[in-house]
Design a protein around this nucleic acid. Structure first.
Lengths: 149, 149
DNA sequence: TTAAATAATTGCAAAATGCAAATAAATTTT
DNA sequence: AAAATTTATTTGCATTTTGCAATTATTTAA
């Protein structure tokens, strides 16, 4: 059953990309897709350094450094020097940043909810399991996707 | 079972994005992610117009127009005026463009193959079905992803 | 205490983006 | 059939994003 995998995945990838993009524009929040990913990642991790987040998102460190500068200027992110190693800056969300991250999260959950509403209970569970599995398999893959932990 | 959907999907989206990005850089082919998507879409559709592909990819038409110009300059895409409506340009891949699209396709299939190799036969089928389902549900969704047909 | 490694920033210069306006061809009104 | 409207595509900016090379500042290793 060689159901064209590439085509399916291409379509899924693009649709997820759109969903993603919509979310960070919604609710009067005008940040870019990349920026929303950065906020998400800072929120998720426990006091990450600049380097860590850049690696996690597979963004060039110089580009990332500037993105952080922008987010700091926007008042969404805070840079705190690490006392034990003064080369390193620790990132955290400001109250505003946390708020924006939350709005995006809600928006995204709402979208996902809507998408899942077109499925039966059984299908829902199957999709959830499949996504989990796919993530695990991609994590195991030697050939790609390595930077994401 | 409120297994954090957003987190799962965020991770999947990002990993798929990476996989995607890797593919268009592999094999000495130095085109951007967007450009690889354009090639894919032109290849897939039957003599699409500029507008049609731009819509399908949800790219601003002015940006898209310039992307096409670049791809024409790179010798990967051909623009042919439609005889019956001279406002419209029909897009097609050149031999070179077709070649590049094929290399990317093979690369991508290879990656997918690798990812799926970490699963059992049963799991593979489940994931395939789930992706199909997810695509259908996203297509049905009123709230996002509309431009992609 | 030099030398090498690591974290982050800056200096370009190229590429990508998108709004507003322009062009050009078709369609609809009048 | 001429004028007005719509549609497809292209330019003119001005902004933003990107990434390689080089720099600064610290820390760790030799």
């Amino acid at each position: 059953m060689e159901s064209n995998k590439r085509e399916m995945f291409q379509m899924m990838t693009r649709r997820l990309g759109l969903l993603d993009k919509n979310c960070c524009n919604a609710g009067g929040i005008g940040i870019s897709l990349v920026q929303s990913h950065i906020l998400y990642e800072i929120d998720r991790r426990h006091h990450p350094s600049i380097q860590q987040v850049a690696d996690a998102l597979a963004i060039d460190i110089t580009t990332f450094s500037r993105q952080i500068q922008s987010l700091v200027k926007l008042g969404l992110v805070q840079k705190t020097p690490l006392p034990t190693d003064r080369r390193i800056y620790i990132l955290s969300l400001t109250t505003q940043g946390k708020f924006v991250a939350t709005v995006i999260d809600e928006q995204m959950n709402h979208y996902l909810q809507e998408v899942f509403s077109h499925m039966s209970e059984f299908e829902r569970d199957m999709v959830i399991n499949a996504v989990k599995l796919l993530n695990e398999s991609m994590a195991k893959s030697s050939v790609c996707c390595t930077p994401i932990g």
